[in-house]
Amino acid sequence: MNTFTVNGTAYALDASSREQTLMHFLREELSLTGTKNGCAIGQCGSCTVLVNRKAVRSCTIPLHRIAGKHVLTIEALSQDGDLHLIQQAFIDAGALQCGFCTPGMIMSSYGLLISDPSPTREEIRLALRGNICRCTGYQQIIDAVELAALRVRELGTIL
């Protein structure tokens, strides 16, 4: 129980790192900077990752709380340069501007679609309430998640 995985690779928890936040570990130790730091107090959602396939804010979670768990970051979504269908949907729907919130938005959307591949727009809004986007006004983001959900259903799997 003193290990956890990030994108499939195992890491050991040691006494010195137990209290460090997951966001800090990802960004500073593993250079996985796709997980963004927007506020560091769990308010903006830019640092969202999946822990055991659930979307969480990595900036407020100390490492010891993910012992034995599996972390997935934005970097693991695209395989061999091919975008994940949620990523592609964000491009196709014009759902990104400056792009800083985008990885967090995509991870929250991923968490939602894992549990429910047929969300209503209202449910999408609910699932993304913890993610701030200062650029878009949100509509195209909701469009992107709706489009991604459609493609998940057509494909029969979220991958």
């Binding site: 960004r27 500073e28 250079s31 996985l32 900077t33 796709g34 997980t35 963004k36 730091n37 970051t73 934005i74 970097e75 979504l77 695209s78 975008l83 990523q87 592609q88 964000f90 491009i91 196709d92 014009g94 990104l96 792009g99 800083f100 985008t102 990885p103 995509i106």
Partner: peptide
């Protein structure tokens, strides 16, 4: 599809706060 789209959705775009 916008030019920076792939970099931004895949987390590969480096913003100043990501640089070291």
């Amino acid at each position: 599809p916008r030019k920076e789209g792939k970099a931004r959705v895949s987390g590969k775009e480096k913003y100043p706060s990501d640089l070291s």
